[in-house]
Design a protein around this nucleic acid. Sequence first.
DNA 1: CTTCTCCCTGTTTTT
DNA 2: CAGGGAGAAG
Length: 668
Amino acid sequence: METYTLRSRAETRETVRYRIDYRGELNEAQHDAATTLQGPVLVIAGAGSGKTRTLVYRVARLVESGVNPAQVLLLTFTRKAAEEMLRRAAILVGASCEHVSGGTFHSFANSVLRRHGRPIGLSPGFTILDRGDSEDVVNLLRSRAGLDKKERRFPRKGAILELFSMAVNRSTSVPELVETTYGHLADHLEDLLRLEQEYRTYKRERSLADYDDLLVLLRDVLRDSRDVAEQLSRTYRYIMVDEYQDTNRLQAEIVRTLAATHDNVMAVGDDSQSIYSFRGANFRNIMDFEKMFPGTRLVKLEENYRSTKPILELANAIIDRAPEKYTKVLRARSTGDGKPMLVQCGDERAQSRFIAQRILELREEGVSLDEVAVLFRSSYHSFDLELELQKRDIPFVKRGGFKFIETAHIKDVLAHLRVVANPRDAVSWHRILLLLDGLGPKTATEIFNHLAPAADLAGAVELLRATPRRGAYTKELARLADVLDEVASDNVPVADKVAAVVGFYVPMMRHLHPEDHPKREKDLEHFLTIAARYRTLGTLLSDMALEPPTDSVGDVLAAGDEQEGLLTLSTIHSAKGLEWEAVFVIWLVDGRFPSYHNLHDTEEMEEERRLLYVSVTRAKRHLHLSYPIDVYDRTTGMVLGKPSRFLEGLPGHILSETQVVEEGGLDQ
DNA sequence: CTTCTCCCTGTTTTT
DNA sequence: CAGGGAGAAG
């Protein structure tokens, strides 16, 4: 049944004259969502249904209605998404939109905790641990507890951390998780629990917070400090949460508390695009929103403006076969008849050559490189293609996978800066001390213990100069102290601080990596230009942990001089929310996509299906799905060659099948 | 103690 | 195919 809305009194009383023609610019459902300003609203927004547009107009509507932009909070999946929306809103109603607070849950938690962490005992200078840092800590505690020397193999740092993190993000406990899903760890449960406690203490004592802690601590401060909770709830009177299907219970709790005094929350999401369950998200959470906020107004956006009809038909066919009922269907508004193509390739090389050749053809047809994307399930799936693109001088950026910021040399430089920001950061001290020649883990720990009693950085540096242990590294230690002094001094710009560290570090790096230091030096140069954009060391460091530059290693070199636009290579996860004229999805082989890890569990298999749905719905006009046959997979010992099970038995009018052959015949 | 080398294991997605 | 553990040499 259709709904007809009686306007609330608060809205009718104010006879605001709007400059924007909301009715003309938005369809019925979008208009409904953008102009309902009071109370809880849940927007189920299908792919390409103008979700971003709706949010942008809602921000504009709020501002036009006289709401102070500083009272609006826009939580999105990446900071870039938030910035883009606010930029567009600013074009509509003016620059004041830039005062809207926007970003990810984690970055919001970070900024709240820097200001209001005291009541729960968190110092404002705390350091954020990224995944690698957290693993370093767990490893340290693991070997300190002698767990590495056990008769029975103890789980690796990565597995341990995954367990701890999953417990937090699913709002459950380690014992329960071990019982339900990590049965193979049952024998180690006691040790794991002790380790978890030690990990917690270690972080607390040294003012460290990992990603999960940011959410947990924000929840805690909202729960335990009435003052803070009330102040924040009064500050942020209008809350919008994008990509709600990928939030978890902890995040939902946070939203619930933030909105406690007013219930003005709009959640936007799409249950069929939920692809982050490995991070504790559950697509059913989106349905719980109505339970959490009684009286929720439900709006569905089902008109798709992005893709041609045949592409949508394929998308609908894929998701139709999901055993669980979904909440909406997509109707095409875009004309055009580019039919999706399923392309069989002889092997991986042929697939890469096909993609490269087809991209160049499209370019001749007027589709420029920056309107094309190649998507894949796992980051390494594009390695061979990257070589082919390089060979043909096709410039690209790669999103997702290993990041520039995660390379050892960048982390080394960052560690120097982090020690200055938080002198109790043992992980970073350890890291920079180990760089010195002739200084190993034992001495590093000794020196850190010697430093630890210092009240601040100045004290620590003084103790560093007076280190009792002497060795070949004594002189280096003094130089390190000089550099740290320089980084700590108040009237030095961030760029100069970073330059000082790089100047100190590069000679060591040449010694450490005699083979490839030129490449690494280029990365460091790139990092210098990034750092120069920051006014304080603190913001540089939190940004590098929370929103690191998304580019991965390769393109730092490539991106510099190309003006023409770049082809995008991306994991499907990193392609979320984006769109291109032409999209290629590669490696659609059963075992790769769906990934063989997830073949046995229905929940996981369904997430793979949604992953394909997300990839397909990124395309506007051209869609190619490709798979190589005859692939030997070393890890499983299997020969892969069957197309993805999600594509099996689709009628020919939905998907046209093509086989790639060599010029001159079927044989290679 | 530190550093080098050799062998084994286990491979997704991200804040 | 690297990351890490074990063992040997400096």
